[in-house]
Design a protein around this nucleic acid. Sequence first.
RNA 1: GCUGUUGUAGCUCAGUGGUAGAGCACUUCCUUGGUAAGGAAGAGGUCGUGAGUUCAAUCCUCAUCAACAGCUCCA
Length: 645
Amino acid sequence: MNEVKITLPDGSIRTFPSGVTGMDVAKSISEGLARNALAIEINGEIRDLSRVIAHEAAIKILTWNDAGGKYAFWHSSAHLFAEALEALYPGVKFGIGPPIDNGFYYDVDLGDQPFGDAELTAVEKKMGELAKTNSVFQRREVSKAEALAYFTRKNDPYKLELIRDLADGSITFYQQGQFTDLCRGPHIPSTGFIKAIKLTNVAGAYWRGNEKNKMLTRVYGITFPKQKELDEYLHLLEEAKKRDHRKLGKELELFAFSEKVGMGLPLWLPKGTILRERLEQFMRKAQIKAGYDPVVTPHIGGKNLYITSGHYEKYGKDSFQPIRTPDEGEEFLLKPMNCPHHCEIYKVKPRSYKDLPIRLAEFGTVYRYEQSGELHGLTRVRGFTQDDAHIFCRPEQVKEEFVKVIDLVLFVFRSLGFENYTAQVSLRDPQNKAKYIGSDELWDRAEREIQEAADERGLKTVAVQGEAAFYGPKLDFMVKDALGRSWQLGTIQVDYNLPERFELEYIGSDNQKHRPVMIHRAPFGSMERFVAVLIEHCAGNFPLWLAPEQIAVLPISEKFNAYAEEVVNYLKNRDIRGFLDDRDEKIGRKIRDAEVTKVPYMLIVGEKEVAERKVAVRKHGEGDKGAVFLEEFANAFAADFAMPQ
RNA sequence: GCUGUUGUAGCUCAGUGGUAGAGCACUUCCUUGGUAAGGAAGAGGUCGUGAGUUCAAUCCUCAUCAACAGCUCCA
């Protein structure tokens, strides 16, 4: 066998002599491709271009335009960073240095040496110098003994720990310049491809992600093949920061925090409250249509409620502590979730199979003692309101109900223009079953039903182990914020456990007692987090039906204030939220202020408008639309102001 | 919770071992102006909080609280 058949991405098959490398294949396709080639994908696996293609394979040459090409590029950049760091800080110890979505990081142990912006800049400069030497990334297979010997000599305990977990025969080293690292690869051909370098920030990270381990210094960076691309990336970051919901929330006066009230406890300002209540109305309407019954439950519950539910055992120590009363031994908990209350509502009377499914919905405010370091704007808070509901149904109804909830979640997402979400099936961690309650049989069944329901609606799902709630698996809808951080919004969970713990029952057609199944669900997730992501999604330019202030009425001068006020009142009577800007300012100023506060429409009134009972319409971001009769304006835009159905 | 950074006027931020400054916002006056900032004057701060060093601390040291970045966590 001295030839290999290689299938190219276009489906064509070419034959190469044995010993052919990825680079040879790239060159045979075109010089340009060879110049830009970073790595090669062989039967779905990314490899170095320099490696010999031993067997018949389908390949794709990867460049900067491929995710796999970027992956190799940033992985190699992490090595370049390590080389530079070691040159400047001999004896530094290395943890791991992988590529990430945007760039790479490397965990390092610098001992007690300080590492700040000045040091970052110095390393960045050194990286640039080393990149210019255009050192080749050389791959070498080593035995476990050899690998251990190398890093013992180098006195790098972290690498030694990593090597000990690897099987002999599977270990490779990569070397560029003076630096050798334990690495599976793949890498780009040489450092010269890396032309633009930015080390973005420094943070702490536990060794191997375990908070009991030592904290290493994690340095984040990003690199590009062209300076222009780095500039564009940094510009994009700046733009993203402008839509950060914490910044816009302050600027648009939507919400605030107070140290006196307490961290993670948001205060909803008048404008933010309008927005939130509009969303609530929207959801209430959709839920009534979908057959939900609204309920209301108190903000606290007796401790026994949570002992029954299992939450006390699981979270009791790490929660807001029980509220005591003058009665000896009486204790209440601030409710951290609504399910137990809803279970008690289910139990107020005997239920028949004919009653099911029962869907109890509540905008339930709950309190969770989140770790202080985890609080983040409105996305992670200690007091929040879930658009919660619990569906109690017969086992054979689970899938049908689950599918209906998926439809509701998708309707919500569609209505608000969320298109880029990930549907994540959150499963139990099979390695750590002790973390969860309930039998294997029930878990397997619930996990299967969730997947089937998602498949039925053609949802593209990603299954992630270890992300389930302790009482059951979930289908989570994840959305990214302006800065690329992923947040869970909608969630649907199948639960066989709480009905067991609360001994929920219904009488079946056989006149026997049966156990219902519970589905927990929150399409928004929480009002707080949803509003946060919504703000970033639309950069504060809310859809008309949600805008806290839909219209600014701007009189040209004080002489027209009376008419302007008439306009505002007219709009109010038609359920349009308008406000009057009667400040002693020129019209240009009033327009500017309305534009920067993102008011969707401005109605300008002066002498002409008063005489004809018209308004001059100006649309946010678009400019003058001309004058129309007031009534005509209200009629024409009434549809746009309405809530989606 | 952990590591690091930050904390000065309502907001955005300068600044200094000798008890503080700008722009915007705010108040008053002038101005009655037609599609993104009219002019003038004024008011506003125990420099996050508490201790220490010093003749003297907003500045240096320590502690504490909060925010930010990341990690860990997320019913």
